[in-house]
């Protein structure tokens, strides 16, 4: 664990949103510094060296995607993007440019907090050191490549395991279709989204109690999948 509270840089142009986010995040033990524009935000990134960035995509002075691209040239800190609904393409572009996750406005503070925690977990722990992934009734033994649901071992194909493994590496965070297709099947399969859909259906049938009301493997419509790591 870190000694100090993790420091978040919040780049958001709306004053009220900034105030309410700051206040709520402070009570949840995050230290928050904020910037109201892209330019001042980029300057603060270099000076204050935050652990995490929350970036509103709709800034007046700079395009959010430009900020992400620029930032990625010198920093690897996790980026959480705030965006409007029905802008799936923008979300995908932001994720491709190097953002780690997104949250659709309007959102609850609880949702924001769990995303931030997922991002922090990812930078704080090295996945290889972790032998067992556990959430709800699902248990995956990463060293033996075994999957258990309610303590019963589930037969799983190598491809299915590969998909699940990538999602575990990003537990709690969104993983785009493109990323999964590229890493499981290879770059020449980027247009073959139906492969992924069919494998996901199979995986859900094996892991989920009710595949149409999944607890673990959540669809982020138009963007990708998310493996919930705090399933109850």
């Amino acid at each position: 664990m870190m000694l100090n509270n993790p420091k978040i840089l919040l780049i958001e142009d709306d004053l009220q949103t900034r105030r309410f986010l700051k206040k709520n995040l402070n009570t949840r033990n995050w230290e928050v510094i904020d910037a109201d524009s892209g330019i001042s935000g980029l300057a603060m990134l270099k000076e204050a060296v935050p652990d995490l960035l929350i970036l509103d995509l709709g800034l007046p002075d700079m395009d959010g995607i430009t900020i992400i691209k620029h930032l990625r040239q010198f920093s690897t800190i996790p980026i959480l993007v705030l965006s409007a609904r029905s802008l799936e393409q923008t979300k995908i572009t932001a994720l491709d440019a190097g953002a780690d996750d997104y949250l659709t406005k309007p959102f609850g503070i609880g949702e924001l907090n769990s995303r931030l925690q997922a991002l922090m977990r990812r930078i704080n722990q090295i996945p290889i050191n972790q032998d067992v992934f556990e959430t709800g009734e699902l248990k995956v033994d990463l060293s033996k490549r075994q999957v258990f649901v309610s303590q019963k071992e589930i037969k799983i194909t190598p491809t299915e395991y590969h998909i699940l493994f990538i999602l575990i590496q990003h537990a709690g965070l969104v993983v785009t279709y493109k990323y999964l297709l590229k890493n499981v099947w290879g770059t020449s399969y980027l247009d073959n989204q139906h492969y992924l859909r069919i494998y996901m259906r199979r995986l859900r049938h094996k892991i989920e109690e009710n595949p149409t009301q999944p607890r673990y493997l959540i669809t982020e419509t138009g963007v990708g999948y998310r493996l919930l790591n705090n399933a109850i």
């Binding site: 859909r197 996901m200 259906r201 595949p211 149409t212 999944p214 669809t219 982020e220």
Partner: peptide, 11 residues
């Protein structure tokens, strides 16, 4: 898959 669309609608 229809399952997936229905699943995310229910979610």
């Amino acid at each position: 898959t229809l399952e997936e669309v229905i699943g995310s609608a229910l979610k």
